[in-house]
Design a protein around this nucleic acid. Structure first.
Lengths: 158, 158
DNA sequence: CATACCGCCGAATAATATTCGGTTTAAGTT
DNA sequence: AACTTAAACCGAATATTATTCGGCGGTATG
């Protein structure tokens, strides 16, 4: 599916304001509400956009600790990898998980109520493949730039 | 502000489905639409929820490279820190930035159209404080678990 | 007990979403 | 250029939803 300027614009707007009304969206992209809705539906069906998330201000809600953990596996077999990753992703406090190249690493972002809870999660991860996992924990001191969507303008031109 | 079960539930639901209608939301939390809307407004005004983001499937849209970069500053003065961070956050392709403890590191998530574009961004970051910055780049091979909200149930009980 | 304050509900109204038929546009074909 | 076809558009009608507002309890306070 090759997108024209209008559909890109829709994605861009919806990405940043998922609760905009269809009428406003239609205005902003220069379409009638019906056509606009039509496009949004198609974009959703094509899987190009959605789900829609509300950003919760966790810091305002309760005390938490965010940790960025880098993981190295001594046994880099596919099985070991999968075992670790499955366990990690099943833990609700592990909110993000990436497999990365370079040093066969895994990056995790973990949210815990406090350090002692984080410790437990850490232990749980270490126990998956005893002695084969090296986890380096980095406590987040400050969120300089939280994720707020992709730079579609920059990316879609290329 | 201390939240009761209903408001927590609202946050939890909105976090995962920002485009739910107020009527549906009201049903799910067991309130009338008017009361429900009232609560949502208060939560928004209190800054506990919002903005609302649409998740775009970047992989389906265009080819991109995601890199997780870990940054060490040799000069760990506040000024150097701030200078680097400001530059980094101003780059659209840097979609996420965390200051972390442990080894006075910064974590960045960067999206680029391709490697050569990433290289340019990398150079730009290195040039902020010449010779004082060490960037280690990790190309994302696989997104095991994309961020889809916080585990409020786990966190708010504590 | 009064009073005041919340938060709730339900009804009325305003705004929005959604459907649908008819029309335009664009591309490909003869 | 005229024709054909498919896709996308628009506007009006309808359905659904959001929003406002008055009134009704609960509950805390004096």
């Amino acid at each position: 599916m090759q997108l024209d300027k209008i559909s890109r614009n829709i994605l861009s707007i919806l990405q940043q304001d998922a609760r905009i009304t269809n009428q406003n969206l239609a205005d902003r992209v220069g379409l009638s509400p019906s056509s606009c809705l039509n496009r949004v539906r198609k974009l959703e069906q094509a899987g190009l956009i959605g789900p829609y998330l509300g950003v919760v201000d966790l810091a305002a809600l309760c005390r938490t600790v965010t940790v960025i953990a880098t993981v190295s596996l001594k046994d880099q077999s596919t099985d070991a990898f999968r075992a670790f990753q499955q366990t990690a992703e099943a833990i609700p406090e592990v909110v993000e998980c990436y497999t990365v190249s370079g040093s066969f690493d895994i990056f995790l972002r973990i949210i815990a109520p406090d350090m002692s809870r984080y410790n437990k999660i850490n232990d749980r991860l270490l126990d998956v493949l005893p002695g084969m996992v090296n986890i380096s924990s980095h406590v987040v001191l400050n969120t300089g730039k939280p994720f707020r969507g992709y730079p579609l303008d920059e990316l879609l031109d290329s």
